[in-house]
Amino acid sequence: MKQPVLEIKNLNVDYGLGDNAVHAVREVHLTLHKGEVLGLAGESGSGKSTLAYGLTRLLPPPGIVAGGQVLYHAPSGDVVDVLRLSDSELRAFRWSEVSIVFQGAMNSLNPVHKVSTQLMDVIKAHEPGLSRDARLARARELLKLVGISADRLDSYPHQLSGGMRQRVMIGMALALEPQVVIMDEPTTALDVVMQRQILRQLVDLRERLGFSVIFITHDLSLLVEFSDRIAIMYGGRIVEEAEAHEIYRNPLHPYSEGLLRSFPALRGPKREVKGIAGSPPDLRSMPSGCSFHPRCPRAFEPCPDVLPILGPPDGYTLDTRTVACHLHPATIAVGAKEPVG
């Protein structure tokens, strides 16, 4: 039985208040299991980054979490709601339980401090008891973990290449051995060769250290290769969630299918590729019913009016596969089992 590490229940995130609020993330239910790589895919504006910031409470104003729960299952067995932590609890929680590698992480390092100073800073803040030598030893260990030789400790960020800076960031995210690492487009700024090296290293590290990963990217072909499960977001909602190879072999939602067919294949026979007609929806004026219906090639009568519920289609259970589409009506909605609150 897979153990959940992070359970997101009915999460809603708005930008702004009142009638003018933009609903960036709506009614998201998502469970991350131990040791799993969960991929979050979608176009820009689909709410995938907002979801990550919402669940770590890093949303910049005017973003607010409008409702829902984020339950974290600590290794000790305690369950805490991240959204209800006090400021000091949150400070202790962040980075030691859940860490995040930001989009364009190579520019997140402070240019005027050495790599060693920045790595030791993290450890110092969370484990003040450790001596300087012990911290230095730990920093050295971290660099080795991500495949950088320890003599780079005294380098400044500008002396490292983009790929090395990205590795330093990943090392820093692993400094306190968190249970969950969130990676927001961790490799978009890198070349394919470097991207592959870093992701393979991450997968190896996960096997050794046993953390779970939420991997956010718009590159679905990358996700299919590197993640266990994939959730696809559109217009702030999850429209399909399933195991990576199932999404790839047999996408049920027309949007997932469209995303998959947007990538020209490098190998095998040339198959016809076509993008998705239209452009991503404007969150300020979302289409009625299923928000994908104006772009959907298979939209039919209920789509413009009725919002499809996210649930398991025929032959699947809540744990294996869910989809929100009238073509594959669900009998039971995700999140319906538990009372919301």
Binding site: L259, S262, F263, P264, K274, S279
Partner: peptide, 11 residues
């Protein structure tokens, strides 16, 4: 550009 509209531009 977003992946879903790249092909439109290339076409």
């Amino acid at each position: 550009l977003d992946v879903s509209i790249r092909l439109g531009i290339l076409t």
